[in-house]
């Protein structure tokens, strides 16, 4: 739905001519839909920006929202929807801010009865529809990027490798272990082993809600990779139900040491290293 240049000019004229009334009504309608969750001043400022950028676009002869003259209008619209998305408004609450203009225009144009009024109104509302859709799309984009950021942060946060003792590092796994996370955990653990030169690693699965064959496969791969590099892995924090699941699924951990708690695993590792030093001390004595 494209606007002719004349229609664009008429729209600009209409908006300029009744500037105060348009903004007043527009703000009122939007405020009613947002139910006071945005301050009156903030709302008025947003409406004002939209209003003036629409006038600029109309005066410069923008034929639709994709045209070059409407760049500023697009920028204002995406700014508006970004702000709303971050403040937690819903998509329709955001779109209504734009669609409210239709109602305002209808009220205005009812008063004047020219030869073009009906055609003009149809053309204007076409433009407003475009603006609404644009707002909706940028709202969704903002939301998606927010979600992607959060997922990444979660991935970063949930896989720390901690040093428990000299030569002993531990990975407390929390949450579901999918392929992507397993990969991150594996890489980070192996890198830490190299960086710290620790010959022992404890993988603690207390925080893993369920262990299926896939999760077990990921853990086994990590253990084998660590062994290839010359470090030993111990799996700890196996809860009773998980032990039952592991047996029921027929998962074999082979000769990998498994312990019930992190404390047991640490004691096991210390005994492994401690026995050696103990024997050496006896030999010296």
């Amino acid at each position: 739905m494209a606007l002719s240049t004349e229609e664009g000019n008429r729209l600009a004229g209409l908006l300029t001519g009744h500037a105060e009334r348009v903004m007043q009504r527009w703000t009122e309608i939007v405020a009613a839909s947002l139910r006071g969750r945005l301050s009156q001043g903030e709302l008025r400022r947003q409406v004002q920006e939209l209003h003036s950028s629409m006038i600029t676009a109309g005066e410069q002869g923008a034929v639709d929202l994709d045209s070059e003259q409407a760049t500023e209008l697009r920028a204002v619209l995406s700014e508006l929807s970004r702000g709303r998305a971050r403040q937690g408004f819903s998509a329709s609450e955001t779109a209504v801010s734009v669609f409210a203009l239709k109602e305002v225009l209808l009220e205005l144009m009812e008063d004047e009865d020219g030869p073009h009024t009906l055609r003009d109104y149809v053309a204007f509302s076409g433009l407003i529809d475009q603006m609404g859709l644009f707002t909706f799309e940028s709202f969704v984009r903002t939301r998606e990027s927010l979600i992607a950021d959060q997922a990444e942060q979660l991935l970063e946060l949930s896989t720390p490798v901690v040093k428990l003792w000299e030569g002993v590092v531990a990975v407390p796994l929390v949450g579901t272990l999918d392929s992507a996370r397993a990969q991150v955990v594996m890489e980070r653990l192996l890198q830490t082993l190299v960086d710290t030169g620790s010959p022992y690693a404890i993988i603690d699965i207390t925080g893993v809600p369920a262990v299926d064959t896939q999760v077990a496969q990921h853990i086994l791969k990590t253990v084998v990779a660590a062994r290839l590099m010359g470090a030993d892995c111990i799996i700890s924090g196996i809860r009773p139900q998980i032990a039952q699941t592991i047996v029921a699924l027929g998962i074999e951990f082979g000769d990998i040491a498994t312990k019930a708690s992190l404390a047991d695993a640490l004691r096991h590792v210390l005994r492994l290293t401690g026995v050696e030093t103990g024997r050496r001390q006896r030999r010296e004595a």
């Binding site: 594996m186 890489e187 192996l190 890198q191 082993l193 190299v194 791969k221 084998v224 990779a225 660590a226 290839l228 590099m229």
Partner: peptide, 8 residues
Amino acid sequence: PAVAITLV
């Protein structure tokens, strides 16, 4: 690490 992962 990358080599170990590839081997596995």
